[in-house]
């Protein structure tokens, strides 16, 4: 028997599709005619069927330990899920809403707009003047002197103060 492969690759492709149940029924007569004449394709057909038979006879039972291991792991996942903090719930309502619904681009646009409006509407500062000390002359007849404005200098003649006493 030959170990070579058919030189007609299209015919061998049809053979594969036939083995897989994907060949159109209309193309079957052409394939069967080719098989009747081609020993290489017949040998390949036998090999594919033998492989399939051997593969499908092999027992592949899932070990019982696999079920127990999976369910134990799912229990762990559930417990971990309960313990894990719900960060969304912990966020403030506004922050949460912003995180969920407003994109970064939109937030930047709003911030930029606020800066522009603030710049336009802000009162213009008056021309800067050099700070001048105000001098207030007064007589302190009695009691305490309270100085509230740090820019005010108070001069009280000591003689009058003394005379007043």
């Amino acid at each position: 028997m030959t170990d070579a492969f058919c030189t007609d690759e299209a015919a061998e492709m049809r053979l594969n599709e036939y083995v897989d149940g994907e060949l159109d029924h209309g193309a079957e007569p052409e394939l069967f005619a080719h098989l009747a004449a081609c020993a290489d394709c017949r040998a390949q057909f036998d090999a594919l069927l033998a492989f399939r038979l051997a593969a499908r006879q092999e027992p592949l039972a899932v070990p019982a330990s696999a079920d127990a291991a999976l369910f134990a792991r799912l229990d762990d996942l559930r417990r971990a899920g309960r313990r894990a903090p719900d960060r969304r719930a912990e966020r403030g309502p506004l922050g949460g809403a912003l995180r969920r619904r407003v994109s970064v681009g939109a937030m930047l646009a709003v911030a930029g707009l606020a800066v522009v409006i603030g710049t336009v509407l802000a009162p213009r500062p008056a021309a800067t003047e050099a700070p001048r000390d105000r001098v207030v002359e007064t007589v302190l007849p009695d009691g305490m002197l309270y100085v509230i404005d740090p820019g005010v200098t108070i001069e009280a003649p000591r003689a009058e103060r003394a005379a007043g006493r």
Partner: peptide, 11 residues
């Protein structure tokens, strides 16, 4: 490749 391995065993 499967054919190359199996065909000599089958025939």
């Amino acid at each position: 490749q499967i054919g190359q391995i199996l065909r000599p065993r089958l025939h």
